[in-house]
């Protein structure tokens, strides 16, 4: 009897136990082993698990590598551009579709379709589109834009897109003024032009998903609220700006969190579309990890970069989880 009692009292734990054990091994165990490897001397195919002296030297090496500095810059810039583009486009599409225009079902599916593709497919297609010789640049000739520019004495328009190594809005000199060590950076802190086409491709793929999130949110706003605002004399613009979009805030937060975590982990799209790019203009930490682990066999450096990636994701995800757990409790 006592035995049975024990089982029923602990049934919750017992049912969860297998998945707890698996998670402990395959998630936290492997995070731990990656972290351990990042502290060792293992940098060839032969395993070497002796600890490095000084212990944190691999991290110091990593952060002083111009390539990894560029990766951190690119992650930051790409995340900002991508979220800005995807959220505004997704919201715009959702609002348009919510206004009951003709062909709503058709457009909703059309905008959602890219989300069904794999990032590799998107990357290959957009690589062709942004090829400076054979891609979108041909339209500038075809539409007569270049002829017009040339006849007015200007040079024809032929952007290099993902092959353009320039970095605009560089803030290095500002950095070096407020922070003496800022002058030591070997890379330019600014917006790498080559990242913009990549952000556009990612937006194309995920704005449909954002739209679907917002459509769900818009469906939950009762028509009485709109009517009330209209009776109070709100214009359509004012209605969205002051009533509907603020009501969609929880959706916006969830969407942005999901997109940030897509963006921090991004690999396949960039790898297929532009690779590391000229002067690492489109390199991202995930490509760095892949090349250091599987091409250079520098396991300690690759794992240390993945630990940094984990920390970056945690900075976003952990506060969100804490926040949502707290709201659920109250």
């Amino acid at each position: 009897m006592i035995h049975q009692h024990w089982i029923s009292r602990h049934s919750g734990v017992l049912i969860l136990l297998p998945s707890l054990i698996l998670t402990a091994i395959f998630v936290y165990g492997f995070i731990g082993s990656s972290f351990f490897i990042s502290l060792t001397n293992w940098r060839t195919l032969s395993v070497d698990l002796s600890l490095r002296d000084p212990l944190w030297q691999t991290y110091a090496d990593l952060l002083s590598m111009p390539r990894f500095q560029a990766d951190l810059r690119n992650t930051f810039v790409f995340t900002t551009l991508f979220i800005l583009f995807a959220v505004s486009l997704g919201l715009g599409l959702a609002i348009l579709l919510d206004r009951q225009l003709a062909g709503k079902g058709f457009f909703r599916n059309t905008f959602l379709f890219p989300y069904a593709l794999s990032f590799i497919v998107t990357g290959v297609v957009w690589r062709w589109i942004f090829n400076p010789e054979t891609g979108i640049n041909l339209f500038f000739d075809f539409l007569g834009i270049n002829q017009a520019l040339e006849s007015s004495g200007m040079s024809p328009l032929s952007p290099g897109w993902t092959t353009d190594p320039s970095v605009v809005f560089s803030v290095n000199h500002i950095l070096s003024q407020v922070w003496p060590a800022g002058g030591d950076f070997q890379i330019e802190w600014g917006i790498p032009v080559a990242l913009i086409p990549v952000a556009i491709a990612a937006t194309w793929q995920l704005s449909g998903f954002v739209m679907a999130m917002y459509l769900g949110g818009l469906g939950g706003i009762r028509p009485q609220i709109r009517d009330a605002a209209r009776i109070d004399g709100a214009s359509e613009f004012r209605l969205y700006r002051s009533v509907i979009i603020p009501m969609l805030n929880p959706i916006t937060i969830s969407t942005v969190i999901i997109l940030i975590h897509v963006s921090l982990k991004i690999f396949d799209l960039v790898f297929a579309m532009s690779g590391v790019g000229p002067g690492f203009a489109t390199d991202v930490p995930a490509i760095f990890v892949f090349e250091m682990m599987f091409k250079a066999a520098r396991y300690n450096l690759g794992t240390s970069a993945s630990v940094v990636m984990l920390i970056l994701s945690s900075l976003v995800i952990v506060p969100y989880l804490m926040h949502s757990l707290k709201t659920r409790e109250t």
Partner: peptide, 19 residues
């Protein structure tokens, strides 16, 4: 040279071509 140097050379070239 070993693979780690080969990768480092590729990275240094990527940087040099631009800078």
């Amino acid at each position: 040279a070993p693979a780690d140097f080969q990768q480092a050379l590729n990275d240094a070239l990527t940087d040099f071509v631009v800078r």
